[in-house]
Design a protein around this nucleic acid. Structure first.
Lengths: 295, 295
DNA sequence: TGTTTACATGAAATATATCAATGTAATTAA
DNA sequence: TTAATTACATTGATATATTTCATGTAAACA
């Protein structure tokens, strides 16, 4: 019994992601009737319906949801497998899925841009995909195989992953021009201000709460730009990486609330699976990130 | 690029395992020329030759060896994947690969036979494969996924595996009828005899050597029957499970060398992967092994 | 040298997949 | 209520892919 024959699963996944047969035509490059056939064949092979469709809308069945998740997984694995065998030719190839957190391009020492330059300075057939997500999601991606490499500040290390430190990022507390602390004297800046003012922070780096036991942050964001917006509004204090806040500090729109107990550092790591199925593309990119040797 | 299309890999693996195209015809149920085409297509897709063949014999190339290993792996994974999705129908199905050590059928409390009875007393589409190997190979098989369940005496536990104790096995030292210790008095039996006589043992349970520091065993075997043969020859002492030695003791061909320091016990476990991709067949068989509930 | 074995190749046959056109059923609009 | 629209299913023709059958080739063997 072969569910992978004739790209039945690719069709299924495309249909799910496009929300219907008609839309999936363009993504798959085949006609709607061909898609209809494939889904029908898949359902015959499986023995159950994977989705409800028709004029009344597209919806996965319960089993269809499970099937979809597993289908995505096996497709990725097969892709990686193909790439592995093809790399035996000598040419590095295949999909390379890299995950990062947001707002890192301006981080001094962040190795992504030079690594991309090194990696792609030599001709290759690698197809790159870069996703931006939280460290936790990136960790998950590495474990499930949906990511090959992640660059992020990982706090807890997982046994099945390998971490190599590449750089670090300094965080400080900032307020916007409209904030009452903007013109406060140096002696007014102390860790207590965290308790007395609304604070916003990224959901995944709860550094503020830990060190100074704020009752609870007034706003939680999942992304730096959102944090910056809240700080610039003047209604929130917030923690930002210095390299990111600089642009507003220099234009007088933000102020660094300087105090030795209001700084944090996070270590950035290159993370990948230990038992990485030996993809040259992955190994070489890691090398490129570590600035080792010439690609 | 799809290496899995048209069963290219199945053909490749069959050819490797059959040692040539001609022989693989019968296994694959297609003609020799069809196999030739498939291997050619595979090689075109890969961009390198996977095997040398012809009248001069069949042989994998270096890359071919690697490709073969990986192909076996992905085929197993795809099989498991198919089974997972098919099990959503409600019927348990697919391949179930179980590993055991040798000479366990007569071990009291060994749950395999009753489990098979329970498991197959309810109609199902499961295809069973039972392999006999050393605990170490079984562990390896569980980790790589070539086995779903293993029943064996595991000493060191692996983190990624789950172990449930099911029974234990008592080992004693035996000699054959022709051995000089066969008629020895009780007071002549002591741990020292291990140093003074040739001893055979299974390569994976080095219990004798550890406890009594024999210089080195004179014979190493990988299987109980071989050990029994050596003991029956009268030239070797050896450790056997009591339930297995009984047949020769009762017929006067072996003697148990009884001494409190010359007995060993090994614990048998049902082992499986913790993060087992949720196959009902696997879970149900484990339940059957543990005599839990009714299948 | 001729025979056998093991695989390769080409054309025809067969099987499979896709397309274009059309049908159907559920919405939405009139 | 009817017509139009949308989303998919179906059908028969067509294109593509795969397999077989017959035959070719090359190496080993006798």
């Amino acid at each position: 019994m072969k569910l992978l024959r004739n790209n039945l699963l690719e069709a299924f996944c495309a249909v799910v992601e496009c929300g219907g047969f008609s839309e999936a035509q363009f993504r798959l490059g085949i006609s709607q009737s061909a898609i209809s056939c494939r889904i029908r064949d898949l359902e015959i092979a499986l023995g159950y319906r994977v989705c409800e469709r028709g004029r009344s809308g597209f919806q996965l069945t319960e089993r269809g949801k499970i099937a979809y998740e597993k289908a995505c997984e096996i497709i990725r694995m097969v892709e990686d497998f193909d790439a592995e065998l093809l790399e035996l030719r000598g040419t590095i190839t295949g999909q390379l899925r890299i995950g990062i957190v947001d707002t890192v391009i301006s981080l001094p020492g962040f190795p992504l841009v030079p690594a991309l330059q090194r990696f792609f300075s030599k001709e290759n057939d690698v197809n790159l995909e870069i996703v931006v997500a939280s460290p936790n999601d990136l960790k998950e991606g590495l474990i499930t195989g949906s990511l090959h490499i992640a660059l992020a500040p990982f706090k807890r290390k997982r046994d099945e992953l390998e971490y190599i430190k590449v750089c670090s990022e300094n965080h400080f507390l900032y307020c916007g021009r409209e904030h009452e602390l903007f013109d406060a004297g140096k002696d007014e800046i102390s860790p207590e201000i965290l308790s007395n003012h609304a604070v916003c922070q990224r959901s995944y780096d709860m550094i503020v709460a830990r060190d100074a036991k704020t009752p609870e942050p007034k706003a939680i964001v999942t992304n730096m730009e959102a944090a910056a917006a809240l700080i610039l509004s003047g209604k929130f204090l917030g923690v930002l990486p210095d390299h990111y806040a600089t642009q507003w500090v220099e234009t007088g729109n933000m102020r660094l609330l300087e105090h030795p107990n209001l700084t944090w550092t996070s270590e950035f790591y290159v993370a990948s699976r230990k038992s990485q199925s030996h993809r040259q593309a992955v190994e070489w990119f890691i090398k490129a990130l570590l600035q080792e040797g010439v690609i």
